[in-house]
């Protein structure tokens, strides 16, 4: 049984089909990439899997349990965590606090305990802070811990986003363009980080435009076009697939596309 199973998933926006009849599986520790031109429905797919959009058709399963349309926080409790393409940072909080919010599930306590700042509340605060700091170190941002998120660079915020998602102790992590807008060095770092997370047994579903990164780290690639699955296979298979090449550059640019896809 797969960790994440997607069967016949589809959604329409005002009569236009954004995603249709999508099937795929993700196994523990596997890195699966979703590629496709802009508007192919990649982010929409993520929004459906993570419970932000309610799909019109199909099911999403975690460990075989139907979790279609569960609220995002219920999915988080079941070990599904994600980052966002357009950054959903908590801008008025520090980098450390951003990651501390990510630890929410392990630190939540009755409200009155927090209102009265009982010893257990302070203790949890300390534990969370330590854990968040460890995660910040992991994304090399310990120096920025006490800076407000709104004052940090785009690349730093992308990494905070990942640290925050990791704080949930996910079993499957959805990364929406983690390397977008990052320079070569930062991309390299994110690349290594993703591989490392997968090594620990966390499944990764990745949307990314940087084809080098995709082809290098993925076990499995799914190409989308106009909301439907165009092709699925190993990176090598996908980069040779004529349909994928055509979707990316049109039928004339075949050779150049093949070169670009590596």
């Amino acid at each position: 049984m797969s960790l994440l199973g997607v069967r016949g998933l589809g959604i329409d926006f005002g009569g236009i089909t954004a995603v249709n009849a999508l099937d795929f599986d993700v196994q523990p520790g596997e890195i699966v990439s979703i590629i496709g031109p802009n508007g192919a429905g990649k982010t929409t797919l993520f929004n459906m899997i993570s419970g932000i959009y309610k799909p019109d058709r199909g099911t999403v399963t975690l460990d075989g349990d139907d979790v279609t349309s569960l609220e995002p926080h219920k999915l988080a409790e079941r070990g599904l965590s994600r980052t966002f393409q357009n950054l959903q940072s908590f801008e008025q909080m520090t980098a450390l606090e951003n990651v501390m919010v990510g630890c929410h599930m392990s630190e939540r306590s009755p409200v009155w305990v927090d209102l009265l700042r009982l010893p257990s509340s302070s203790r949890r605060n300390r534990e969370t802070q330590e854990r968040a700091m460890t995660l910040l170190k992991r994304v090399h941002l310990e120096k920025a811990a006490h800076m407000e998120a709104s004052s940090l660079s785009y690349g730093a915020l992308k990494r905070i986003d990942i640290a925050r998602a990791l704080a949930c102790n996910p079993r499957i992590l959805l990364l929406d363009e983690p390397a977008a807008g990052c320079n070569a060095v930062e991309t390299e770092e994110i690349d290594a980080l993703i591989a490392e997370i997968a090594q620990e047994g966390v499944a990764i579903l990745l949307v990314e435009h940087d084809m080098k990164l995709v082809m290098k780290i993925s076990n499995h690639v799914i190409a989308l076009n106009y909301g439907e699955k165009l092709a699925e296979g190993t990176p090598a298979e996908i980069s040779r697939d004529p349909k994928v090449v055509e979707a990316y550059l049109g039928s004339h640019g075949g050779k150049e596309a093949a070169d670009a896809l590596g």
Binding site: I52, H73, Q88, F90, Q92, V101, C168
Partner: peptide
Amino acid sequence: HDSEIAAKTVGA
């Protein structure tokens, strides 16, 4: 205050 959706995805 800053992002309701992100707060939900961390399990709140």
